[in-house]
């Protein structure tokens, strides 16, 4: 099986793509339902408004945006599930919805909330099925399965029924299923949803390694900004059907979500803001620039700081060394906050 090699360097070209939905306008109550049978009124919803971007081989791109921003509509169009109303999508030389059968042989898709594995059967049975579906030859299949199951640490799970796996284990198995046919393009839709931090880290590490090694494109949507921070160089932020930002993740972090919050609970009663300040000012690793301490409820304090000037580690080290601390929480900025900040920046 030969993969069509694209003519230019861009593996994925999206030009002025837009998508509208007609949402039936429903009236309340029984009479409304009866009226709805005869005449339906629709409201037009612009899910995607003329979006363009290109993606090169080996890129890992994160798509983020609040719920209902148009993320999943866009991903569905890229996967060939939805047909765009206008614009052009060309991926690996295919138009996804037109050449679906040939195109989908070249992509791997993982939907975080929908399993592709067979619930009642051992994991490996689902893989046998993938082998048949994607017509993978036996030798290549065995080799890839061996390698992937080592990388994702699922060797011991292969003969367990899917229903007995934990959420994190299942997700790792899903990813293997999506990669057995060695696709040059991988879609991950919310791959870390509902997972604990260790499971998340395992998956992130794998995605990064795999993409570097195979040179494949990875597109990922997520709610968790730290997913993107860890593995993507490039991020595309979508809101209300538009691309709000397309560029390096670092610059987003710097510009919009540079601030972190540390919530610290102290055991000792004699705490006040002054003492925290004093302790920080005596530490060489800590700068008081863009650092703000405020008192929360009870004996808890909030430290807001920018990551350009301070690292979380040195702050925590300092606190632990000088005070008796009962709990520390790190508050990540939410995507909603980042998007809001970007808006404010744009409008001002």
């Amino acid at each position: 099986m030969k993969i069509n090699s694209p003519k230019n360097k861009e593996m994925m070209v999206v030009e002025n793509v837009s998508k509208n939905f007609n949402i039936p306008y429903k009236k309340e109550g029984l009479s409304g339902a009866i009226q709805g049978l005869f005449s339906r009124r629709y409201t037009l919803k612009e899910a995607i408004k003329s979006v363009s971007f290109c993606i090169k081989p080996g890129e890992i791109v994160g798509f983020i945006g609040p719920n209902g921003a148009g993320k999943s509509t866009l991903i569905k169009m890229l996967c060939g599930i939805l047909v765009p109303d206008a614009g052009k999508i060309e991926i690996l030389g295919f138009v996804p919805h037109k050449h679906r059968k040939r195109y989908t042989r070249n992509i791997g898709v993982v939907f975080g909330q929908r399993s592709q594995l067979w619930w009642d059967l051992p994991v490996v049975e689902s893989y046998t099925l993938c082998k048949k579906i994607y017509r993978i030859d036996t030798h290549a299949f065995n080799e890839r399965l061996k390698k992937l199951s080592e990388l994702l640490e699922i060797k011991n799970l292969l003969h367990q029924p899917v229903r007995t796996l934990s959420l994190g284990e299942k997700m790792r198995c899903e990813i293997v299923a999506a990669l057995l046919h060695n696709p040059p393009l991988l879609f991950l839709d919310e791959p870390t949803i509902g997972l604990d931090i260790i499971a998340k880290i395992k998956i992130r590490r794998f995605i990064k390694e795999w993409s570097e090694e195979s040179g494949s494109i990875v597109l990922l949507t997520t709610h968790d900004l730290s997913d993107i921070q860890d593995i993507c160089k490039r991020v595309i932020i979508i809101d209300e059907g538009n691309i709000l930002f397309d560029g390096e993740i670092d610059s987003v972090i710097k510009r919009f979500s540079n601030f972190r919050r540390l919530q610290v609970d102290f055991f000792q009663d004699n705490m006040n803001i002054e003492r925290v300040h004093q302790s920080f000012s005596q530490d060489k690793k800590i700068s008081l620039e863009e650092l703000e301490v405020s008192q929360g409820e009870n004996n808890s304090y909030l430290i807001k700081f920018s990551q350009t000037n301070n690292s979380i580690i040195s702050l925590i080290d300092n606190l632990l060394a000088n005070f008796s601390v009962s709990d520390i929480k790190i508050q990540e900025p939410l995507i909603e906050t980042v998007v809001r900040l970007i808006y404010e920046r744009k409008n001002s």
Binding site: C79, I81, R102, T104, F111, R114, Q116, I133, Y134
Partner: peptide
């Protein structure tokens, strides 16, 4: 409703 059709449409199969 549950959207399983999506997972099928991304497979190279009728």
């Amino acid at each position: 409703i549950k959207g399983e059709l999506d997972t099928i449409l991304v497979k190279p199969i009728n």
